[in-house]
Amino acid sequence: MTIVCAILILGGLFFYAVGVVGILRLPDFYTRLHAAGKCDTLASFLVLTGLALYNLSDFTLANVLVSLKILAIAAFISVASPTATHAITEGALISGVQPWTKETRAK
């Protein structure tokens, strides 16, 4: 059980790291948001699932309730984070942020 939790949490940390690299290295607003939105959602989901499973290693009713609350947070993040990313992207599109293309790369 502990090994499964460790794999889940480490997987989450890996995706967080990928997200950080994406935010730092990608060239413009949209691609950075792409990295941040996707990686954060998946990584939070993995880390929280791992924590909920780890909490169940001592199986009592109180711990089951805490695990259910953690899973509820995970479900909430997996709805809210993509929606927020979508809203930010649409706001940027409306206010006219130009994407990175072959022509704008030269300067």
Partner: peptide, 14 residues
């Protein structure tokens, strides 16, 4: 935005 409105409608009760 349909996506934002649907997500908000799902989230507000919780």
């Amino acid at each position: 935005s349909l996506i934002v409105q649907t997500a908000v409608r799902m989230m507000i009760p919780f």
